[in-house]
């Protein structure tokens, strides 16, 4: 069975890649689906199931490049972060989420990242990309 999950980017959902074989994990694009379950549940179910077989002590770096997201996507990502925190507390390898800010002075996006971090207790690293 493949240990890779890939969801193609559309107008309303980001590209999601969870590739355990090559250790590449990313979200890229906008996230404004009408029903967030349809987009994220299969992806997150796959991710946490594969984590149970993850024997490496290497950290898992998740590259987040989401430029816009609706409020229900924020909730979905907060739940994801809570589960990442649970994993980190029990394992040597750590899940690290890095969120790239693509716009200058994007206070709203910084506020969303802070809200997710504070609500979940899991720290997301902010990366500012030069425009």
């Amino acid at each position: 069975m493949s240990n890779k999950f890939f969801l193609e980017k559309t107008d309303s959902n980001p590209e999601i890649l969870f590739d355990f074989e090559n250790n590449i994990f990313s979200f890229k694009g906008n996230s404004l689906p009408e029903n967030v379950f349809l987009v994220y549940t299969p992806a997150f179910d796959f991710f946490f199931k594969e984590l149970q077989n993850y024997a490496s002590e290497k950290n898992i770096l998740i590259d987040i490049q989401i430029d816009f997201l609706n409020s229900s996507s924020v909730k979905m990502l907060m739940d994801f972060c809570k589960k990442c925190l649970d994993y980190n507390n029990l394992n040597t390898s750590q899940i690290i989420c890095e969120w790239s800010l693509t716009s200058k002075e994007d206070e709203d996006m910084e506020d969303i990242i802070l809200s997710i971090s504070e609500a979940s207790g899991y720290t997301i690293k902010k990366i500012s990309k030069k425009i």
Binding site: P33, N35, F37, S71, S72, D108, D111, A119
Partner: peptide, 30 residues
């Protein structure tokens, strides 16, 4: 507003339709 947002983010479950109950607070914050 930020506190309310975080509280709902943490306590509310998504509805069957996938709504989080954050819409009006999000609109007000923005």
């Amino acid at each position: 507003l930020s506190e309310m947002y975080k509280e709902i983010l943490l306590s509310n479950r998504l509805s069957e339709k996938g709504t989080a109950g954050l819409g009006l607070i999000d609109i007000a914050k923005k």
